[in-house]
């Protein structure tokens, strides 16, 4: 890579947003100070945040949403029933017949593309770009992590990568691969709960929560890729996730992989939303 190219697209995006925010915050400060001065009010700025859920069918639609959003995220938390870390050329062909096919092909690369949309891959960044790499955590059930680790080990055997002689367990090889190549921290949940992510969320200014609904036990009948033979306790539940969102109050939550039949159910309140 050319080391002289010190600016990634996300670097420019974040810098532009920071400049914009600095300017608007300056105006607000002046206006708010003038308004409150006669009354001796002590307080914070007026609330500006608008909290949004963006609902998608395919997880592969989410990177476009993130890339086009005006927020510049400083933390990304994903929960998913599968690890979508493909990076191969097979998912990026220029010869795909249409947009829906492209989205179907990119489903297995959603986490990789979210990484690109929030700072790029660590090996592609030069040192001065790294502060713009939003920390990214993927909460994944251990059964799915084991399956991904076995798949990675199989690929390493096929390509005769030296790492197969490594004494580490497949999970630790996977964890190292995700951290070094994608800048993703893996959170094995279940068995671990999501509480440790709350501290990270509270410390972040603009966190993103990305939910693939196949992470949840209750959604296995309403998603495109349910896991097979799920036993109680193997997947996450919605209640802890809702508690996390209630406490962290992120401005953007992306949700994906729910079937339209679930979204358009006559029971669904989505249709009655304004």
């Amino acid at each position: 890579m050319d080391g002289s190219t010190s600016s990634s697209p996300y670097h420019d995006h974040v810098q532009a947003n920071r400049n914009k925010k600095d300017k608007s915050a300056g105006h607000l400060f002046r206006i708010w100070d003038i308004l409150r001065w006669p009354f001796g009010l002590i307080g914070a700025y007026p609330p500006l945040s608008v909290k949004r859920i963006v609902l998608h069918n395919f997880h592969s639609q989410v990177p476009d949403t993130i890339a086009s959003d005006e927020l510049s995220f400083d933390l990304v938390i994903c929960v998913d029933g599968h690890l979508d870390d493909f990076m191969g050329s097979a998912e990026q062909s220029q010869s795909f017949p249409d947009e829906t096919f492209r989205l179907a092909a990119h489903r297995a690369s959603a986490h990789s593309f979210i990484r690109r949309a929030t700072g790029d891959f660590p090996p592609l960044l030069v040192e001065e770009d790294k502060p713009f790499l939003a920390p990214m955590y993927v909460a994944l059930p251990i059964r799915s992590a084991m399956a991904s680790a076995e798949e990675l080990a199989r690929k390493m055997r096929e390509t005769k990568t030296d790492a197969i002689s490594d004494p580490e367990t497949p999970i630790s090889v996977l964890t190292g691969f995700l951290k070094n190549m994608l800048g993703i921290e893996l959170c094995l949940s279940p068995p671990h709960n999501l509480k440790k992510l709350l501290t990270l969320l509270r410390d972040a200014d603009e966190p993103l929560i990305d939910i693939d609904v196949d992470y949840f036990h209750e959604f296995q009948g309403e998603c495109y890729s349910p896991l097979e033979k799920v036993e109680p306790g193997e997947l996450g539940f919605t209640a802890p996730m809702l508690r996390l969102i209630r406490k962290a109050q992120p401005k953007l939550v992306t949700i994906s992989e729910a079937k339209l039949s679930a979204i358009h159910s006559t029971q669904s309140n989505v249709n009655t939303s304004s």
Binding site: I53, N57, T100, V213, L242, I255, I263, S268, V270, S274
Partner: peptide, 30 residues
């Protein structure tokens, strides 16, 4: 279940935007 999740999020003052495909058939065919 999705209904319940969205309803709970709306009670936390979240607005909902949809970026959806035409149909499940289109998604499943792809």
């Amino acid at each position: 279940m999705l209904t319940l999740l969205l309803e709970a999020l709306k009670r936390m003052d979240y607005s909902v935007e949809e970026r959806l495909l035409q149909s499940d058939e289109q998604a499943e065919k792809a």
